[in-house]
Design a protein around this nucleic acid. Structure first.
Lengths: 186, 186
DNA sequence: GAGGTTGTTCAATAAATTTTGAACAAACTT
DNA sequence: AAGTTTGTTCAAAATTTATTGAACAACCTC
């Protein structure tokens, strides 16, 4: 990358030269790196992009809140990725803003209460799908009541079963929220 | 696709010519199609490939078990996809074999008990990740007890929190299984 | 055991998703 | 108000993931 191109994109942080050895990443300890990898793995299971896991993992295992450009430098990811990932995490309630005196930059810190994380994930990722599924299902059910073909009864039976699944899924989410919300015991 | 290439791959089902209008798909009713799309949508939320949703959806909303080549023809997907998708679904316990008299082909039918589906998904998709995560975490914790840097105490605190998350996650899975297992009531 | 059917495997291809980075906007500074 | 810093956007590129299809193996049937 040319110096000209870099100057257009990367802010030159006002730190001393020895702080930037060569490229982007710097001073993530081996332990931090392993924790970050743990989160990368976890978010992939949840169907979220790697960068989201890296960002949350870094904030989770960092003792201090940090601004976007530090996240970019530490993880060696692009500003765009960091910006999008942080927006996603903020929308979910997994990351919150933190104001630092004498610094115009927004600082970010991880929200670490499992209850809040789960609530954000349920509200942001699960419920919207559950609701749109419910609507689709109702539409199909309405069409099925008029089905007089030889399969009509079978279809209605299966659609009733689907409705039952959905109802139990909704109940389950409430149970999950309640369970994760209580103060931990046994 | 050339006729030669096709004959090497696609079994010619012994049905009459008018049953194969042009290409692959045939006689999925509009209602069935909508249900299949509902499942495609649902499995994507679970992080599974579209073809898995199509196959399960077709079997779920079909009154009779059907063999692989019929699934291929109805959905217009490749034999490879169908074979892999069916293996996945069988491993999960979401699809089971069904023997049809005077037919050498294996027939497949959807398992529709929510309890079984959830148990299969938990055992097949969630538990392995949870366990590997637990192992990774234990390894990191062992390294952290020796950390005498100024951040050591912070790291140990966060790792303890992660352990707590994992413990609660495991409990939650048990609760979910128990809830979905009981016969449905309010 | 030759020929046919059924289902699997896996390298190549296609499709979907994520990441990048330059351009831009907003907000501050001097 | 010109220049600087901070963060966003989005088209293009890179990466990841899913699908295809030809080759193959297993198993019938005659």
């Amino acid at each position: 990358m040319s110096a000209e191109a870099r100057s257009a994109n990367q802010a030159r942080v006002s730190i001393h030269a020895e702080d930037i050895p060569v490229a982007g990443q710097e001073e993530i300890s081996p332990l931090q790196l392993e924790v970050i990898e743990l989160f990368v793995h976890a978010v992939k299971v949840l169907g979220l992009p790697k960068s989201v896991g890296e960002i949350y993992g870094l904030l989770f295992i960092s003792p201090e809140a940090m601004p976007l450009d530090v996240i970019v430098a530490r993880l060696g990811i692009s500003k765009g990725s960091a910006s999008q990932g942080l927006r996603f995490l903020r929308n979910l309630g997994a990351v919150q803003l933190f104001q630092v005196a004498d610094d115009r930059r927004e600082h970010f810190e991880a929200v670490t209460e499992l209850k809040k994380l789960a609530a954000g994930f349920i509200n942001g990722e699960i419920n919207p799908h559950l609701e749109s599924g419910t609507q689709r299902l109702e539409k199909i059910r309405k069409a099925a009541v008029a089905d007089t073909s030889e399969n009509g009864a079978f279809y209605r039976d299966r659609l009733a079963r689907l409705g039952n699944w959905r109802r139990r899924g909704g109940l389950l989410l409430k149970i999950v929220s309640r369970f994760l919300g209580r103060t931990t015991k046994k």
